[in-house]
Each structure stands twice: as structure tokens, then as C-alpha cells.
């Protein structure tokens, strides 16, 4: 990375974090949503401890998917509305690298908090302690993938008035592998099996998404602005 690209990357990351910090009241909403969705389940299926415990990995991960979807729009929306995205696209630096900076900033403020809150919810649902550790690990590996794939979807729909519902249609099918490996890892951990295979798969998905997702996201942003 040359110096000026490095500077652009860090300035952008810092800027996005700063903006979220100044809007922290809004930034916390996806997190509350995540907690609320999980809390709704006991009301839906009944306070059966065994049932809730069995379903806990699936519940928490589906809630994480929904929370991720809810927060995705904020990656590019306000920059699209106020014209900053044009300046980003017209920068001489590689747009995919700048997109990556924005996605990382987005994950730090919307994905990472989920990782921190999840253990609390796992306790609510009666998950044993060692499975909670695995849950945290899967969230740590999986939620960045959600942000990276989601960025492609948002970049494709940011110019649309009715983008929200289409965004769900675009990204949820692509989220399925993450959901499968992550919730399965937690289930297996609860049953006392080794989960290194699932965690390796999640790590592989993360690396793949890190390397590939910024490229179509950048191409889609150029498309959305034209």
C-alpha cells in the first residue's frame, strides 16, 4: 500500500467511526433490535427451557442476520444522499480499498456490538458456558462476512427508493452458508463435539469475502451513481 492510499484508508475509517460516534443514539438501534428479536422467541414458542436451549444457536444467528440487514443501509446511504459518495468514486485511489475501509468501520459499530451482547442472550436461552465461547467465536468470524456481502447488496440498491425489501432478497440467500456453519458449530459445541471444521469454514468464508467482496461492491457503487 502506498502512503497516500494508506492515508485515505485510515482517514475514511476514522471519519466513519467519528460520524457514528456523534450519532450514537441511532447507531445503537440495530443492537436493540437484535436483543428484541431474541427476546421475542420465548413468547412465541413458550418458556420451555429445553426447547429454547436447543433452538438458541439458530435463534441468535437468525437474529444477527436480521440485525445485520437492518444496519446495512447505513454503509452508503447518507454518503449517497449528501454527495460524498461521488467524491469517493472520483478519488484516484482504488475504490475497492476505500469501500473496504467503510465496511470495516460499519462492522466495528454494528457487527462487533452484537458479539459483545450475544453472551448475555445466550445465558437467557440457557446455553452452557463452553458453547457460549464458541458462539462468540462464530459471531466474530461470521458477522464481518455479513457486512462484506451486505455491502455488495447495498451498493446495488442505494440509488433505489424501494431498496430495502430488495436488499433482503439479494443478501439473505448469500448469507445461508454463514448461517449453516455458524449455528451448526454452536449446536455441535453444545453436544460436546469438536467444531474446528466449522470454524475453519467460517474463517475461509471470511478470507474469501475480504478478498473478493469489495470488488463487486465498488463496481456496483459506480453503477449506482451513474
Amino acid at each position: 500500500m502506498n502512503d497516500s492510499l494508506y492515508l485515505a484508508f485510515w482517514s475514511l475509517l476514522r471519519r466513519d467511526l467519528l460520524i457514528t460516534y456523534r450519532n450514537r443514539a441511532q447507531a445503537i438501534n440495530p443492537l436493540l433490535f437484535f436483543v428484541l428479536v431474541v427476546i421475542l422467541f420465548p413468547f412465541g414458542v413458550g418458556p420451555d427451557v429445553v426447547l429454547l436451549k436447543t433452538m438458541a444457536p439458530g435463534i441468535i444467528w437468525v437474529a444477527a442476520l436480521l440485525a445485520a440487514l437492518l444496519s446495512l443501509d447505513s454503509i452508503f446511504r447518507s454518503d449517497f444522499d449528501d454527495g460524498f459518495l461521488e467524491q469517493l468514486v472520483l478519488s484516484p485511489h482504488a475504490l475497492s480499498v476505500l469501500v473496504l475501509a467503510k465496511v470495516i468501520a460499519h462492522w466495528l459499530v454494528s457487527g462487533f456490538p452484537l458479539v459483545l451482547v450475544a453472551p448475555l442472550l445466550a445465558v437467557f436461552l440457557g446455553m452452557p458456558a463452553d458453547a457460549i465461547a464458541v458462539l462468540v467465536l462464530t459471531l466474530l468470524l461470521g458477522t464481518p462476512v455479513l457486512s462484506l456481502i451486505g455491502a455488495i447488496g447495498v451498493a446495488l440498491t442505494v440509488g433505489l427508493r424501494q431498496g430495502g425489501i430488495i436488499l433482503a432478497l439479494l443478501v439473505f440467500p448469500l448469507y445461508i452458508p454463514v448461517l449453516i456453519f455458524a449455528s451448526n458449530a454452536v449446536q455441535m459445541a453444545m453436544a460436546g463435539f469438536a467444531v474446528s471444521a466449522q470454524l475453519s469454514m467460517l474463517a475461509a468464508l471470511l478470507l474469501l469475502a475480504l478478498a473478493l467482496a469489495p470488488l463487486p461492491a465498488a463496481a456496483a457503487l459506480r453503477m449506482s451513481l451513474s
Binding site: 475514511l12 471519519r15 450519532n23 460524498f84 461521488e86
Partner: peptide, 26 residues
């Protein structure tokens, strides 16, 4: 290019906005 939209972010100070602008280009 300066378009219809200023690309100025309300949550940032004037200096912060300009610093970001310059970080993106020459």
C-alpha cells in the same frame, strides 16, 4: 468535481470535512 450536492457531512466540523476531502486526492 463539485456537483449539485456538496458532499459536506453535517456531523463533521468544517475542518474535518476538508481534511477528508484532501485525504482522498492529491
Amino acid at each position: 468535481y463539485v456537483g449539485h450536492l456538496d458532499g459536506v457531512k453535517g456531523d463533521l466540523s468544517v475542518a474535518e470535512n476538508l481534511r477528508m476531502c484532501t485525504a482522498l486526492g492529491s
